[in-house]
Computed example of a mutant assay.
Amino acid sequence: MTATVRVGLIGAGGIASAHLLGYHAHAEKIAVAAVAEVDPAVRQRRGEELGVPVYDSYLEMLADADVDAVDICLPHHLHRDAIVAAARAGKHILCEKPLCLTAEEAAEVQRAVTEHGVTLMCAHNQLFLPTVAKAKELLDSGLLGRVYEVRTTDSFFNDFDPDSMGWRASASTSGGGELIDTGYHPSYLMLHLAGGRPVQATAMLSTHRLTFMEGEDSAQVLVRFDNGVVGHLVTSWAYAPASVTERFSVVGELGSLHSDGTSLTYDLRSGDSETFTFEKVHTISAEIGHFADALLTGSRPLHTEKEGIEVLGMILAAYQGARTGTIAEVIRA
């Protein structure tokens, strides 16, 4: 690895714009060195903007471009193939959520990454909220003792319509509905704060407003972890939550903590209480910097394919529980 990580961007529209802010912010250690994009207009625009070679096929880019890693910003159903191809080419990987769509795809991803010895980081950007980092530090210090419950929320009024929703409207390309899309964020946040492995899940799914979708526009999910923690998440594109709703909260034997995303408060049964406030950060920029640091130092990213597969397992079990009216087991890759 050189002093600057050279990245091939796979998919240059949509979320890639936010990723590029991260590359600009951390230009001293990581940079986009090539772009693969199927849309000719987007491909040309990104090539001119970045001054790098462009390709209409990521397979061609992997074979030809001088890159150390790839950043996968593709629709959900294309993640598995791009991950496997990049791993076989010996490239490290940053992949947007979800990691992939099925247990079978997850097994392929795990096998490819392991066999070819590359680092895969899941682009779980909300882990880089300062409130989340502080909450994790406090939990790991034992502030709350044994944790009983984790709650997470990520809901907003989404103005999608049939013309603008694109591939997200189809379950075959999105993997489901809102839960496997925006709902992925409160899922990985719950996993991070719970500190255990998910073993059971169920859900109630709803379509309140976006009736043109094949999948749900809202979900409420329950997850049990192997350390006894029970998680509850609420996620929706149909509505914004009530103003008193926490972004996340944790309850344990010694007290609780809660956050609105910008401040964090803990209240202990002993009477001790403290509130922390933080400046806003661009979480995707922080994520790009963390990816660079992991590759340059050989350290483990916060979430690798291990956590990505666990989050996917939670969501797939939640979907199964909703379909069957049961509590489903989380399948391990």
Rank of each mutant, 00 (worst) to 15 (best):
Gly255Gln: 09
Val229Asp: 10
Phe160Trp: 15
Ser236Asn: 02
Leu191Gln: 13
Leu296Tyr: 04
Glu49Pro: 00
Ser263Cys: 09
Leu50Lys: 03
Gly142Arg: 12
His116Lys: 02
Thr173Ala: 14
Thr102Ala: 05
Thr245Glu: 06
Glu149Arg: 13
Ile93Leu: 04
Leu205Pro: 05
Leu94Val: 12
Ala112Gln: 03
Leu254Val: 06
Pro53Arg: 01
Asp181Cys: 15
Ala87Asp: 09
Val221Ala: 05
Ile331Trp: 01
Glu37Gln: 14
Pro241Leu: 07
Thr283Glu: 13
Leu120Pro: 07
Thr211Glu: 13
Ile284Gln: 05
Asn125Pro: 03
Gly231Ser: 07
Glu287Tyr: 00
Leu50Gly: 03
Tyr239Phe: 15
Glu305Gly: 04
Ala36Gly: 03
Pro53His: 03
Phe160Lys: 11
Ser170Ile: 01
Glu105Cys: 02
Ala219Glu: 01
His208Leu: 14
Pro130Ala: 11
Ile284Met: 13
Ala69Glu: 05
Arg269Ser: 12
Leu143Trp: 06
Ser174Cys: 14
Cys122Asn: 13
Gly325Glu: 09
Leu62Gly: 05
Val221Arg: 08
Lys306His: 14
Phe291Ile: 11
Val311Glu: 12
Asp267Lys: 09
Ala12Gly: 15
Ser243Asn: 07
Asp159Ala: 13
Leu74Pro: 08
Ala203Glu: 01
Asp293Cys: 01
Tyr58Pro: 07
Ser187Cys: 11
Thr277Val: 14
Tyr23Asp: 06
Gly255Val: 06
Ser243Arg: 11
Val54His: 01
Phe291Asp: 12
Ala112Phe: 03
Ser263Met: 11
Ile284Arg: 05
Leu302Trp: 11
Phe212Ala: 11
Arg197Lys: 15
Val54Ile: 15
Cys95Trp: 00
Ala203Asp: 00
Ser263Gly: 04
Ala169Gly: 14
Val132Lys: 01
Asp81Ser: 10
Asn227Phe: 12
Pro75Val: 04
His76Trp: 06
Val70Gln: 10
Ala65Thr: 07
Lys306Pro: 00
Asn125Ser: 15
Met1His: 11
Leu94Ser: 10
Leu312Met: 05
Met165Ser: 15
Val109Asp: 05
Leu139Glu: 09
Ser270Leu: 10
Lys97Leu: 06
Gly183Leu: 08
Ala69Tyr: 03
His92Thr: 05
Ala318Tyr: 06
Leu233Ile: 05
Phe212Gln: 06
